[in-house]
Structure formats: structure tokens, C-alpha cells
């Protein structure tokens, strides 16, 4: 009886993909409530909130920004593995122009973001126009962008001291770290643009079936091109946050490996790598899940040797729970066991 009820609940088609990532996040928090309660400590310091939960939100912002762009790229059936390197480019240009050339900060930031965005334009050109496979096109950029960032900084790590620049990652607005505001603005803007206009539908349509989309009058090329440009812009902003955070343009190291975190955030958020339907909110949750995991590991002081393995295991679990066919198999298993016990 119980089993069949459970089965019926689980097989109802309207259980959203989002639910599973929220569940994963909730489980992590419940684990912490039981075993690492210190994570929930929160106090007000110098007029802003201070605590591990705020750290999680704050540290997840670069991956969230990259993830928002990445969600759209993946929805069109593509992938962008250059975001980490591209983020280093904006940090490199902005900092070098500010420190070495002494230009005004606003100008430096605009140029930094513009250069990063241009790299996305190049990615889009290769993918949408030339027809290079996304992973190959952006793999080229992964190396190229890192090279450009390093070259422009002359291979040096560049320190800076500039109140306004430092504010990007270290400032506070509404009692919260400023990067959270940046993400909120980008998220709401992107959500409105994709959900209140037909743009989101076009993106999904291109991801589902580009040929049919083209025949129904959607400019497939432009859509594909645009998502790479937008992702690079997001990566550029993430790069500014990363650089501002440590007050150093660490060109060789900044953003390293973040492309994988961004892709994982999208996947945990329930967007399929096959393209088509996407969930921006899911990606935000996905990024939070990853960062909660990292912060938990650090706060608990787990042995270094285990951290990566633990991360991998948790991510595998989350992705398995999300898989329709895996759940079905587990359901059948539970159901059969229940019957065996009954009979």
C-alpha cells in the first residue's frame, strides 16, 4: 500500500527538475545542521551580515555568473569551456590599465569587459558561422584567452590598491556582499529577457532541433552567436569579482578550473547537456550546492586527501537522483523488496 502510494507520487510527471537540486541543497544544509551547526552562526558586523551562509552566497557568485551564461549556451546544445580563461582576461586588462597605465577605473572596467566579450564574439563566430564544434572552438579559447591575459600582464601578478575596484568583491550593499547584487541584477535581467520575450523559446528551440527552428524562421545562427557573446560577458564580470577579491590580478591562476564548476552547476540545476529546456534558477541552486559542499569541507577541516573524492561522490549522487531512469530502477527495486517482505 505504502509502496504503491510512493510510486504514484514519484511517477507524477509534474515533479520539476528544480525540486531535485533544491532537495540536494536542503540535504546538505540538514547535514550541516546536525554535524556542523557552526555554519549557521550569523551576526551583524560593521552594519553587514557576517557568517558562513553569507560566505557561501558570496563565494558562489563567480560560478553563478558564468553558470547563467553557460545555461543558455548549453540550452542551444553547445558548451563553453573557455569561461575560466576569459574571466582572467577581464581581470588582467582592467588591472594592467589601472595600475600600469593609470587610466580611470570606469574606463578600465569597460575595456576589460569589452575584451572578454569580444573573445565570446570570436567563440560565437567559430561555432555559429564557421561550424566548429563548440567544445573545440572554446577549447582553443581556453588556451588563447589564458595566453592573452598572461601576455597583457607581462607574465606578472599585479597588485593594486584602489577603493572602488576593491569594492566590487569586498564592498557591501543592503548588508550583503556586493557581488550578490551583481548576480541578482544579471539573473533577473536574463530571466526577464528569456521568459518575458520569445528569446528563451528560441534558445530552447535551437537546442532541440536547429533545422526545424531554421525552417520556422528562427535565426539559428544569431541565437547561437549571441549566447557565446553573453557568456563571455558574464565570465568577464566573474573575473572582475575574482580579481577584486584578492586585490591582485593573478593572471596565471585566476578562474582556473571554474569552467568545470560552471558546467556542473548547470547540470546539477537540471539543465540537460543535450540542449533544449533550461532552468536559470536551477543553475543558481546548482552553484549554491557546489559552494555549500566546499565550505562544509573547509569548515569541518576534512583531510585534504579526501576533499576531491567527497566532492565527486556527492555530485554523482545528486546527478543520479536527477536521472529519470535511475529513479525508476530504484523505485522498482524498492517496490519489489516491499512485495517480497509482504509475501
Amino acid at each position: 500500500m505504502k509502496a504503491s502510494k510512493f510510486k504514484r507520487f514519484m511517477s507524477q510527471g509534474n515533479v520539476g527538475k528544480l525540486m531535485w537540486s533544491v532537495l540536494a541543497l536542503a540535504l546538505l544544509l540538514v547535514f550541516n545542521a546536525l554535524f556542523t551547526p557552526v555554519i549557521f552562526n550569523m551576526k551583524i558586523m560593521d552594519g553587514h551580515l557576517f557568517g558562513s551562509l553569507i560566505d557561501i552566497l558570496n563565494r558562489a557568485t563567480p560560478v553563478m555568473l558564468m553558470g547563467i551564461g553557460m545555461t543558455l549556451v548549453i540550452a542551444t546544445g553547445g558548451i563553453d569551456i573557455s569561461v575560466g580563461s576569459v574571466s582572467a582576461v577581464s581581470g588582467s586588462f582592467t588591472t594592467v590599465l589601472l595600475v600600469v597605465y593609470g587610466l580611470p577605473l570606469a574606463y578600465c572596467i569597460v575595456v576589460g569587459l569589452a575584451v572578454a566579450t569580444f573573445l565570446g564574439f570570436w567563440n560565437g563566430f567559430l561555432v555559429a558561422r564557421v561550424g566548429v564544434q563548440p567544445i573545440v572552438a572554446t577549447l582553443i579559447m581556453l588556451a588563447l584567452a589564458r595566453g592573452i591575459a598572461t601576455l597583457f600582464a607581462g607574465g606578472q601578478t599585479i597588485l593594486f590598491s584602489n577603493r572602488a575596484y576593491e569594492f566590487i568583491a569586498n564592498g557591501f550593499l543592503f548588508g550583503l556582499p556586493f557581488p550578490i547584487t551583481i548576480v541578482a541584477v544579471v539573473f533577473v535581467g536574463t530571466a526577464l529577457l528569456t521568459r518575458k520575450t520569445a528569446l528563451g523559446l528560441f534558445v530552447e528551440s535551437v537546442g532541440c532541433n536547429p533545422v526545424a527552428s531554421r525552417y520556422s524562421g528562427i535565426n539559428v545562427r544569431s541565437i547561437k552567436w549571441a549566447v557565446y557573446v553573453f557568456t563571455a560577458f558574464c565570465a568577464g564580470m566573474a573575473g572582475l569579482i575574482n580579481t577584486s577579491n584578492i586585490k591582485v590580478a593573478d593572471v596565471t591562476r585566476s578562474g582556473e578550473g571554474l569552467e568545470l564548476d560552471a558546467i556542473l552547476a548547470v547540470v546539477i540545476g537540471g539543465t540537460s547537456l543535450d540542449g533544449g529546456k533550461f532552468s536559470l534558477a536551477g543553475t543558481i541552486i546548482g552553484a549554491l550546492v557546489m559552494q555549500t559542499l566546499t565550505t562544509t569541507i573547509l569548515t569541518r577541516g576534512m583531510p585534504v586527501e579526501f576533499t576531491r573524492v567527497i566532492k565527486a561522490l556527492v555530485v554523482v549522487l545528486i546527478i543520479l537522483i536527477q536521472s529519470e531512469s535511475f529513479r525508476k530502477r530504484m523505485r522498482n527495486l524498492v517496490w519489489r523488496k516491499a512485495h517480497e517482505v509482504a509475501s
Binding site: S52, D55, R59, D250, L298, T299, G301, V304, T307
Partner: peptide, 24 residues
């Protein structure tokens, strides 16, 4: 030594790890 974790020899990770340690 009450807490020990890798900061991968770079500033960004060093900051993040110390941030968590101070709360722990």
C-alpha cells in the same frame, strides 16, 4: 594545529580557506 586544509599555494584559495576556518 586545530585546522589544516590546502590553499593550493594561491591567494584566492588561501582567503577562502581562512574565511571558513575563522568561523569554524
Amino acid at each position: 594545529i586545530v585546522l589544516s586544509q590546502t590553499g593550493n599555494f594561491n591567494a584566492a584559495d588561501g582567503k577562502q580557506v581562512m574565511e571558513a576556518f575563522l568561523k569554524a
